[in-house]
Design a protein around this nucleic acid. Structure first.
Ligand code: FES
Ligand code: FES
Lengths: 132, 132
DNA sequence: CAAAAAGACACTAATATGGTATCATTCAAA
DNA sequence: TTTGAATGATACCATATTAGTGTCTTTTTG
């Protein structure tokens, strides 16, 4: 079971680097080299973060990416949802008649609890938390 | 993010049916028909449950599968680990220098907490819980 | 013996994830 | 004003995981 995919992982790492030096602009390849991860892949990730308003981008020579938000306002839950979709664990499995009912099903209640816990834990971490 | 795959799902459903009528023997195809899921696929799943000691099997005409354990002794965590491997969410992501240290890393602590919670919730449900 | 079952295992199909390649566009600097 | 360094957009390929099938062997009962 994977909680955090590579895309989200790389995004987190890149944002951490950028947050350490908040004013500087970084090109995708510069960051990729620093983090030792594939350049084109990271580039696409940063483009997505730009579209989602986490980064600002500047084209042309001397351009690159820079944080659009304060590091303590970028939460892990958001990054994970950007790259992995919403945290939905309760895709009701027992469509068959076995499941007693949607309102009483124990399994569903438990899965909902797990989902809430995951979301709340991931909501409590931001990029700044990871820098101490 | 998928918490429970089809294999585990089907296993749970099949075990629920079998638990309702604990003494009876069911062939893989009979169960598959009842649950409206693919026969050969369920058959492989039951074979695995047999190998893992959750079911007993009997070959030959009139043979089939029957529970090897009491329904309240078959836990969801075990079924999930059989079909999806151990619940390990903490595959350390920050191998790079970004992560401060394995002992202080906030992210790691949080992921460990999530993992513990998932395991404990899934350990609290058994096949019997699902039959009320 | 014949039919009905599981055992074993190789194989295919679908999906998700990880990653590349290419061309167009923008912009700064020579 | 040309050139090169950057992103924007998008199609594509590679790999892994999950889902599912097919087939042949073995066992058992009638
Ligand atoms: S499994 Fe979905 S309501 Fe019971
Ligand atoms: S991410 Fe693994 S110890 Fe910090």
């Amino acid at each position: 079971m994977k909680l955090i995919t590579k895309r989200a992982d790389y995004a987190i790492r890149a944002l951490c680097v950028m947050a350490k030096n908040g004013q500087r602009m970084y090109s995708a390849f510069e960051l990729a080299k620093k983090l030792k991860i594939p350049g084109p892949f990271l580039r696409r990730i940063l483009q997505i973060l730009n579209k989602r308003g986490v980064l600002k981008s500047y084209k042309g020579q001397g351009g690159g990416f820079i944080l659009a938000l304060q590091p303590d306002n970028i939460f892990l839950i958001d990054l994970i949802e950007i790259f992995q979709g919403p945290v939905k664990l309760n895709e009701c499995l027992f469509k068959a008649k076995i499941c007693p009912s949607i309102s009483t099903c124990i399994l569903r209640r438990k899965v909902d609890e797990i989902e809430k816990f995951v979301v709340s834990e991931l909501s409590s971490i931001n990029i700044n938390s990871l820098l101490n």
